[in-house]
Every structure is written in C-alpha cells, then in structure tokens.
C-alpha cells in the first residue's frame, strides 16, 4: 500500500510538472505541424502525390518529434537527485522507468491523436481509414516511447553526445515505420498480420525497456 501511494504521488507530481511546462508539449506539436507544412510546400500542389506520401511523412515526423522528448525522461531527475530520492523511498529503478513511460506517453504522444486528423486535412486525405491510422498510431507511439526511454537512459551515460540518443531512436524505428506505413497502405487481408508484428515489437520493448533503462540509470548514478 505504501509503495502504491508513493507511485501515485510520483504520477501526480509528473502531471503537475508537465502542466507547468505545457509549452514543451505545445512546441513539439508546433514542430509536427510545421514539419507537415514544409513537406506540403516542398512537394507542391500535386494532391495525389501528397496523399500517397502522407502516411510516411506523418510517421517520420512522429519519430523526429519523439527525438525531441527523450532528454525529458531522466536527465533532469538525475541532475537534481530525484531519481535517487525516489529509489531511497522504496521505488525500484524499474518501476521508476514504468512510471516515466506511462506519463511521457500520455503527455508527449497522445496529443498527436488530435494532430493526425489535422495532418490528414493538410494533406487532403480522405478520412475513411482514420480509425486504422489511429489504432496503428497508438501501438507505434507506445513503441516510440519505450525507444525514447532507452535513448534517454543511455544518454545519461554520455550526455555530451545528443546524437547518440537520436541515432538509437532512428535505427530502431525503421521496422516500426515499415510495418506501420505498410499496414495502412496494404490490402485488407494484410493489415492484421502487420498489426500483429507491431504488437510483437511492442511487447518485446515493453518487456526489455524497464531493465535496460534501469541498468543505464544505475550506471549513471554511480558515475555522477
């Protein structure tokens, strides 16, 4: 019960801190919209081409937006000693990672659920497969959050090199972008198998992320 109360206290504080720094979320959403506008302007008024490329562009921008969030995971809490304080309070590093995954997915990925229909509007897509896009987005965004957690934790070990964290997200997001875009653009009978592959990737990352991230955090604390 004590552990449960501690976890609730941490989640409540994360909500409060994110609410106070809401411009962070806003700036990431603006980045996403600006990215779409740049693609729209650079491709030109060819509606058919825009529509064909739209899903790939949206997913690329989601990955780039995730790149902007990975430093939010652990860096600040490591610098001000909060990760260690939480650990001493009895919360294991693995549970701290799970709390962070939950909070950052809600704050930095879920807002894109509103942005995707906006992107569809900007690309002039029809909305007939919007539910499928949303479903695949939810799975992909969870995978991207776990990747951001691993990158954020690895970045603690070498925080001078931000490119390292970004590269990890980029490399591991290649299969996500392949299966997500392909599932949306493929024929009906091929949709479910590709969603199943994405779910498989998600469960794999959900299983390994707490351990990998916690391991990196422990090393970062001992190096500090």
């Amino acid at each position: 019960m004590k552990l449960f109360n501690s976890i609730l206290a941490v989640i409540y504080r994360e909500f409060k801190l994110t609410f106070r720094n809401s411009y962070d979320i806003l700036s990431i959403l603006i980045f996403f919209i600006l990215g779409i506008l740049i693609f729209v302007f650079s491709i030109g008024p060819n509606k058919e081409l825009l529509s064909q490329l739209s899903i790939g562009i949206v997913w690329t921008l989601l990955i780039l937006a995730t790149n902007l969030t990975f430093k939010k995971f652990y860096q600040e809490d490591l610098n001000d000693g909060n990760i260690y304080l939480l650990h001493i309070s009895g919360i294991s590093y693995e549970i701290i990672v799970i709390i962070k995954l939950f909070c950052l997915w809600i704050f930095f990925q879920l807002p894109f659920l509103i942005m995707i229909p906006v992107a569809f509007l900007l690309f002039g897509n029809n909305f007939e497969n919007i539910y499928l896009v949303m479903e695949i987005f939810i799975i992909s965004s969870l995978i991207l959050t776990t990747l951001a957690s691993i990158s954020g934790a690895m970045n603690l070990l070498n925080n001078k090199n931000i490119a390292l964290g970004s590269s990890i997200i980029m490399i591991f997001s290649i299969p996500i972008i392949i299966f997500s875009v392909s599932a949306i653009n493929s024929s009906v009978e091929l949709i479910q198998p590709q969603i199943n592959i994405l779910l498989g990737i998600l469960f794999l990352f959900l299983a390994i992320t707490p351990w990998i991230s916690a391991f990196c955090i422990k090393i970062a604390i001992s190096n500090k």
């Binding site: 109360n5 501690s6 609730l8 206290a9 941490v10 409540y12 504080r13 409060k16 801190l17 106070r20 720094n21 610098n79 001000d80 000693g81 909060n82 260690y84 304080l85 939480l86 001493i88 309070s89």
Partner: peptide, 25 residues
C-alpha cells in the same frame, strides 16, 4: 539522505514539494 544537491522541484511551490515528500514517504 540529504544530498549535497537540493531535490525540490523549482517549478512547484514550497508546499507542493512538501506534500509530495509527505506522500512519497
């Protein structure tokens, strides 16, 4: 454990930090 750094969150008020510690511990 009181570290050589301060763990209170600067974006929160004094009482919010205290309430957080109360619940955490």
């Amino acid at each position: 454990y009181i570290m050589d750094i301060n763990t209170s969150k600067k974006e929160m008020t004094v009482i919010e930090n205290i309430n957080f510690w109360k619940k955490l511990f």
